[in-house]
Design a protein around this nucleic acid. Structure first.
Lengths: 150, 150
DNA sequence: ATAATAAAGGATTAAAATATCTTTTATTAT
DNA sequence: ATAATAAAAGATATTTTAATCCTTTATTAT
């Protein structure tokens, strides 16, 4: 559905958002550790997110990644749009180049329904809402530590 | 969401099903042409579908691919299961190794909803239903011919 | 000014998915 | 039996996605 890069990206952003208010900024080393994502790859993704204004960064000592209030109040779909684009929400489920109500693939209606359910969640849910759950401890952005591994 | 191979596969099977009753079997050359999918790749996919019993085939002159009544009455999910597996319907939307109601990712509920909508359509829709639409001409498994191209 | 820090940028590698090509096997018609 | 047909099987190539590594730039503290 959405790419691995995008899944890492959402987890990273939600983690960053959950640290809103803390004075210290987060390095990509910290972020990748906290969301169990490969360090160098996460750095690339954070770079893209910074360039597009989803998150902010400052270089040098005491620098790192952080988010502004306005950024936290964005919908999650903006992250998906930046990393994967929105095509997946509009493409034909069976891969036809053009597929519409007037010339549908055999699964058009069913697929559209599912796609829209997902697009709706991503559009209506804000980063803040997800971050709050993480802060509360009612949801998680990292894997459970496996005792004896790592 | 589902792989390209799987999308070609569904289109190929629906096409084959729509030819149920015709005496002549279909070659992979014919099938790939009729669903606008790469010939050699389609052959591979048809091979997998044959081995798993989704469709049938016979080698040699007058041979080719075809479907039995029982095969046509299967749910579409069986095609997905054979080509991609069902993991996609059970994996975490944000890529966590374990994600459940008791230890959810921040989007767990929303994602589950969308995933189940899709799994439900695939499970409740039969190949026959899709093939009927194609036979009626109310839906399509191939791209619109672009005048002057091809 | 200089050294240290941390992200940005660019180049490269690895793995997976997509796609093609060649050889083999089964079946049929002659 | 032999030639022709069509799928099965295996090997190889290409493209995309995922991931790493190395160099450069900006910022800060000394």
């Amino acid at each position: 559905m959405i790419s691995k890069a995008c899944r890492y990206g959402i987890r990273a952003v939600v983690y960053l958002a959950s640290r809103y208010g803390e004075t210290a900024k987060s390095s990509f080393a910290e972020i990748s550790r906290e969301v169990d994502a490969p360090e160098a790859y996460t750095a690339k993704i954070l770079q893209i997110l910074t360039k597009s204004g989803i998150i902010s960064s400052i270089k040098g000592p005491n620098g790192g990644f952080y988010m502004e209030r306005l950024q936290i109040d964005q919908a999650v779909i903006n992250i998906v749009d930046t990393i994967d684009g929105l095509d997946v929400f509009y493409e034909c489920g069976l891969g036809l180049k053009q597929c519409s109500a007037s010339r549908p693939c055999p699964m058009h209606d069913q697929y559209k329904m599912a796609r829209e359910t997902l697009l709706d969640s991503f559009s209506r849910t804000t980063i803040e809402q997800l971050a709050r759950r993480v802060k509360e401890g009612s949801s998680f952005v990292r894997n459970l530590a496996i005792p004896g591994v790592g």
